[in-house]
Amino acid sequence: MKLPPFQYLEPSTVLEALSMLDTYRDTVQIIAGGTEVVNRLKLRLISPDYLMDIKKLPDLGGIAEHEQSIVIGANVSLNEIRDSSLLQDKYKAIAEAAFQVAAPPLANMGTIGGNILQNTRCLFYNQSEIVLKGLGVCHKRGGASCLAVKGGKRCFSVYLGDIAPALIAFDAKCVLEKSGSRRTIPIIDLFTGMGTQPLSIENNELLTGIIIPKQNGAYGSAYRKLRIRGSIDYPLASAAAFLALSADGKLAASRLVIGAAGCAPKVVARASAALSGKLPEDADFAAAADMAYELSEGVDNLALPGDYRRKMVRVLAQRALQGARADIKRGM
């Protein structure tokens, strides 16, 4: 598979990168690790005029511990996340998620920024045109039909990132910079929930860093992922959980996030409310997992059927909550 033609931009500073983005806007595609973008280029899912390489930009690396937060540069590789003792120790769900992304050589190339900003996927979409032509043009390719759901009025492609659900479980934020300004938004707000345009980042913005609020006291987290093979595969269902206890051993805060369950990672808000003030017990976790199931969406567009994947969201939600609870005990 050959790459389509493009002009190559290699800014040497963030400032220069922002200026290039401002100039080229919709005609530029950012590339960092390349593990997703190069594939999309080869399959002709995108054909930008400009490819802007940010891998060598200074100031986008490093995992730094501040008083109130942990700051991770957008170009930090997934292997660095996996190997960070700070994250393994105190933000376990994030390290666990990184541990399960693709395979080590790919996680060595792939960056946290790129992983978060990955596009949605579907068996009817991530193919070259020769295979699918005769079936019609789907919403995500600019057509008006859904090949996965007959008569589907919208796109049902699935967000399959592993890292975002784990970060969202910690209520993490990201820094988006553009020429002359920057904004910090919760990572969950990066997602539009639309399969055709799953990300809300603007065409002149650059994601430069991730901010994880520091946690204190008794808390724990976990990430669980279902896949057919022990390596390489994207999730078929996933769940990240964060639990914090008050002094009396009851749940002071809990966040359950599900992945591979729709066009965006989803916070199971009802679960947070339902668990609040309860002891972290299996029965309540099961009820929370049911809420995750209710919130999940699954159609037949990945390796296993949508019905099954939804059921697995429930199982993994329960297991993530249990894993988070075990992580608390370990920490105490």
Partner: peptide
């Protein structure tokens, strides 16, 4: 020294 997929790597980089 690190393993990299050369099919996903731009030569110019």
């Amino acid at each position: 020294g690190q393993p990299v997929r050369s099919c996903l790597t731009l030569a110019v980089a």
